[in-house]
Design a protein around this nucleic acid. Structure first.
Lengths: 125, 125, 125, 125
DNA sequence: GTGGTCTAGACCACG
DNA sequence: GTGGTCTAGACCACC
């Protein structure tokens, strides 16, 4: 698995993991039906407690991104569950863009960064 | 003050306030040298604990967005404040874009949303 | 066999199978004395591990719904099987009804859904 | 709080708690804006670990039934979030009714039990 | 082997 | 005071 944790990141570990996996799905590195590494394996690889990984996986399940089959591992599910809702989507985008504006970037530069991120987020598609 | 709090927002209140003020600065509603309302007044307006407002102002001060002068209120400082660092900027943008991708939006649509948000964030400039 | 498994169902597979067979009995599709397909056949049909089917049949046997005769297959037994107990019956009904109430349905609507389900569950009688 | 745990209940403790609170909301014992007892208090009252209660509250939050404000307690929120979806509602009702049928109850008796449960679930309305 | 639940106890963040 | 996160370690259920 190509997940990395950042101690300086303010998000909790389980959230970093869940977000990382979402990014892998968005990128196409993880596709429908693929099996995710077991809770125990991720725990060992990242040096993080079992429970913490379980919380991340559980969140992904609640949000409909993965299907958990009890003794049989976790797989990427086909249809995403509920979306965050247009409102939430806009809010997080707005916050991110505000930071860029305050850092002094011009619209042109921000748009370029967005284009770059989009293409890298879709590399495997 | 044109700040609104959202109980369903997952950010802590002090962060919503700090972000809101940052957005007002980015928008140009608050410009260099302008005086922010007192901690006490914001506290009353929003019905929020004094300490909470103080924490928000303290963060804005730490990040260089405002200047606190004892007995003379809080003013917007010039814009060479400390940036969050390129890494943090990218991370927050990346997370927001990932959500849009997973919600099924095409690059075209996302770029349009970005353009719209940018122009509305700069309305007053 | 007219059993279908749902990966998104939170019940374990063996429970889905056992419940499905109970429903077939309740509906009258399976009647006293009829022979159930072998563990091996169900396993093949559904693509499920042999042990899992065995657990389901074992539960049906424990609850008195079927009779297992060595070498002679599994047959539906007469209906004086062990009931779950009034308490358990009420609890599961109560949980289901609570969900309907919280979803905003009126008593009239809930009662209608109950009537419909009852008649469809008894179609073959 | 009028929550009780049943060791014979097959649902996990956190689920019993979450379901119990949902029932209190459906019943009208807990209304919009009311404050739930703190995690620590429930933990003490029921003799259950803090984390277990936290999991229950978190589930209620994820499902939109309560609003959590960090240092300020948990309150019943106004609008329920996403419903379980008509499919899930029907499935749980169908399972419950099947049990009653297999226990030998007539439609008349089942309908009566439903009526009784509905009225008791709405006592405070 | 897999994931799920629960405990005890620590430390942090928020108001 | 409140809730949030994380750990270590136990035991259970499923396949």
């Amino acid at each position: 698995m190509f997940l990395s944790l950042d101690a300086n990141d303010k998000r909790p570990i389980y959230q970093q993991i869940a977000d990382g996996i979402k990014a892998l799905i968005a990128r196409g590195d993880l596709r429908e039906g693929m099996v995710l590494p077991s809770v125990r394996q991720v725990s060992g690889d990242l040096g993080v407690n079992l429970n913490t990984i379980a919380v991340a996986y559980r969140q992904l399940q609640d949000e409909g991104f993965v299907t958990v089959r009890h003794g049989a591992g976790v797989t990427v599910s086909s249809r995403r569950g509920r979306q965050p809702g247009q409102e939430a989507l806009l809010k997080s985008l707005r916050t991110a863009l505000t930071e860029w504006i305050l850092a002094g970037f011009a619209d042109r530069e921000i748009a370029a960064a967005v284009r770059q991120e989009l293409s890298s987020a879709r590399q495997k598609r």
